[in-house]
Design a protein around this nucleic acid. Sequence first.
DNA 1: CTCCGTGCAAAAGGTTTGCACTGGT
DNA 2: ACCAGTGCAAACCTTTTGCACGGAG
Lengths: 156, 156
Amino acid sequence: MAVKRRDIENRLREFEARCRERGVPLTVQRREVLEAVLKRDDHPTADQLYDSLKERIPGLSRTTVYRVLETLVNMGVIRRLHHPGTAARFDGKIHRHHHLVCKKCGKVIDIHDATWNEVPFPEVRKEEFEIEDFSVHFTGICAECRKKTSWKKKVD
Amino acid sequence: MAVKRRDIENRLREFEARCRERGVPLTVQRREVLEAVLKRDDHPTADQLYDSLKERIPGLSRTTVYRVLETLVNMGVIRRLHHPGTAARFDGKIHRHHHLVCKKCGKVIDIHDATWNEVPFPEVRKEEFEIEDFSVHFTGICAECRKKTSWKKKVD
DNA sequence: CTCCGTGCAAAAGGTTTGCACTGGT
DNA sequence: ACCAGTGCAAACCTTTTGCACGGAG
């Protein structure tokens, strides 16, 4: 489910506060892009966000959307997803959650599962890698794709 | 660790058998690209594979590498990875394993962890999603990047 | 007032497509 | 011989960069 209205307001306020304390200029574009990401639960691409905002913000540049998204990711306010598909997708939900990824159509569905959230980090001392978080990709076939008869891409 | 020599031979034989039984033409390019992916453990991009093969296969086209990789993924012989970075990466290891992904440089390290492999699939009846497998992305900072002082953003 | 952020255009990758030719079955 | 696979070039899509202007602190 998408972030709730109340939560969105909190997130925006939190963002504004963080901008101020860091001296990061708070622009209309940044606020609007963040709000647009928070309002959706379908992991939009930069281009989809641009399309949904260009009417509200006349003269908005695609470039700016890319740059703002980069800024928001670096501030830890949103996340960049690396799932199937050519374009990067963005997620306003920054708490730990996992994804169902359809092998056929690439759709990404959020899931929350307490059991999975609590599995302890694996031992990776050998790799000298400092794990901060994790997310699980469950791959398979979504309901719609399962209904369709033709199954071209994946053969088996 | 990379796939072992013996295993590579088995995988190639298995691939040839599957081609025959499906009537998929077995070409030099397909065999060589598959072998090249199996021989490495660093999740190469299409371009890196092309570079490593163009000497062995004079006249090889980048396009062909892309097309062959697509075919191999569809046949289930290799996997496409969707990790940070602009280019898609490919993985010859098709058994269940997980990845350490560096937030800074985008490097992907394989890990095998029995505990993680055995956590049962979550309940997703509501989503009507048929889970087939999963893989876990552990995000954090790799050894090299941790040593570096600056901590701005990703490169590779 | 000073910079940083923005807009525009153009460049820079990475990947896909159209078409003619070659090679596997 | 037939049809799928390949090579080449160009198209395409996403993302990044250079530069001048304008708005936020």
